[in-house]
Amino acid sequence: MGNFLQNVVNQIDPYVMQILVNIGIGIILALGLNVITGLAGQLSLGHAAFMSIGAFTGAILTIKLGMPFGVNLLCSGFMAALFSVLIGFPTLRLSGDYLAIATLGFAEILKVVFLNLDITNRALGLSVPPPYSSIPLPVYVLISVVLAVTALALMQESRFGRALKAIREDEIAAEAMGVNATRYKIQAFAIGSFYAGVGGCLYAHFIAYINPSDFGFLKSIDILNMVVLGGLGSIPGVILGASLLTTAPEFLGFMKQYRMLVYGIILIILMLFRPNGLLGGVSFKEMVLKIFRKRTQPSRA
């Protein structure tokens, strides 16, 4: 099985594969933030911190214990979720911009702590060996993306998803209707962080070298850009945002050093003309149904 999959993976141009895996990891990270910011409406500026927890947990489990990669992925996700609950209890009482700065503060604190721990090898970082698994990493990324999208699509339509949307629209009204806002917010935070942890673990093994400084404020902003640019709360939007921003450096490459200049302008222009993101308001279910209907309807001759 492993050999067969490896052969399939080898058929694809490694450069294209590299980009596809980057997109996949970006999608997982962005979907996680989408649960927190898009569904529950809580602005987090520290998503990269949870990614770093997953990345270092995954790296250390592979290095020290040689843990099978599938289990490792789950452990990394749960570790990130665990931390998010610990942090969520006190901070999720804060509202709006105060929550944003608290998450940013937490991310900065975590980065400094990682820079001072021996187990993370301080600023020297960790070289991560290949994952312990016969199944190639890109397959894990693909499976994770599919699971992440499916889970989120189901979640959105569930009682839980509707409660989160109610909190996003009006927290007080939601509470008046009997929604325990704090509990739901913490759950959303934990789920989003679980995604971040899984994404971080995949990232660590894919890039093969991690360093606490990689997961700073700018990384959090990158992920936030994916979510908002694609369309807050919309799964197809987030997928599009993650794909575009991950490949942006590639197709803006011909601009050489002017690339970041253009990137800044694109962000502004997109927000000015599509403030709700490229696919803001487009739901995954509707999109799938639409395609499905088109396929099944016999074309009129």
Binding site: P14, Y15, N22, N211, P249, M260
Partner: peptide, 22 residues
């Protein structure tokens, strides 16, 4: 052949792969 990785690891990995396979 030049490319700018901005000091970003993910981008650097992509660039290396591009240098090699393209």
């Amino acid at each position: 052949v030049e490319a700018d990785n901005r000091g970003d690891k993910q981008e650097a990995a992509t660039i290396v792969q591009r240098f090699i396979s393209r």
